[in-house]
Design a protein around this nucleic acid. Sequence first.
DNA 1: AGTTAAATGGAGTGACGACTCCGAATATAT
DNA 2: ATATATTCGGAGTCGTCACTCCATTTAACT
Lengths: 185, 185
Amino acid sequence: MKGSRVRADARDNRARIMTAADEIFGRSPNASTDDVARQAGVGIATVFRHFPTKTELLEAVLTLRLERLRDRALELAGSDDPGAAFYSFFTQVVSESASKLAIAQALIAAGSAAGEDAQKAGRGMREAFDILLTEAQRSGAVRTDAAFPEVYALLVGASRGATAVDLEPATRDKMLALVYDGLKP
Amino acid sequence: MKGSRVRADARDNRARIMTAADEIFGRSPNASTDDVARQAGVGIATVFRHFPTKTELLEAVLTLRLERLRDRALELAGSDDPGAAFYSFFTQVVSESASKLAIAQALIAAGSAAGEDAQKAGRGMREAFDILLTEAQRSGAVRTDAAFPEVYALLVGASRGATAVDLEPATRDKMLALVYDGLKP
DNA sequence: AGTTAAATGGAGTGACGACTCCGAATATAT
DNA sequence: ATATATTCGGAGTCGTCACTCCATTTAACT
């Protein structure tokens, strides 16, 4: 006899809802909760049972994305070539930014600016990125007079820029080349 | 006897509504039409008389902003120092981007992606910026292998980056310094 | 198989927002 | 000053969306 009793279908549904929400909100930030439920193949009430508030659902999705990014940064952190690791991560984040940003935007639009877990995940991701930056600077791949805040602002900006107008991949790469030239010693 | 009869109060109200909308939507993209009416000191029906649709109101405001930016670019275009003109315009756009982007975002959220007048104004603004870029390149202030699309993407990105996290002005300037280093020959 | 507590689903509820209707007010021309 | 066509204002309509209630289903343990 265990204290916590977790029914299998509940776990399944929770996962299915998060997947659906990730897709739906990644495409259209103003989607309704019903849309998520339909995509997940469950009733509306089930969504609200697992996530009592739309805001909480959005936060959960955003948190997951941020944690994945952090993990990827940490994987790259031990690399032989810190410069390549840094620029690779930067490029990856920019490439995948569209849907992630849509979710963040949805969260903001939903009213709640903050969000316990999401904030923590954001901090974790930034710390991991800071490690990549520091290593790249130590190896001479990035100028040392560029501090974390402005480099991070550049990452966010490049991401949002790539999202804003739907950029041709070729143009995006050229833009990133300009950014990287500014970052080199 | 003239064919077009324009009552003075109507003109006044239209102007007041646009000003109010500019402020309100610049602050919070999800504001309601009632908020605009209240801020403008008119009734709701008056807003809808002048702008039959919320989308049209947003477009009108965005168009005005874009036209102002274009004018500023054209003013700077004849300058003695094309490099300074280019970087000055770039910096100005980034500084003021917060509210402008909020409006554009509101437009997207309102459903309508396109928008006749706004598109035309956007084109005009981009053309004016292209002039600044070309002159700056000719004067040797900007590298000549940077084409318009990626430079424009950089402008949009820097703007959105500055907006995203509310950046300290000092950090924003450092970020811009990095961008400008990437643009120099 | 039977029991039971947890989980589900979909019809409801209340609030809010874009947009309309129409009687009252007012600018303009005579 | 009066007439009149235009504009105004705010109460109302309609649709949508986040969130709830409860009868029914179902996983899990004996």
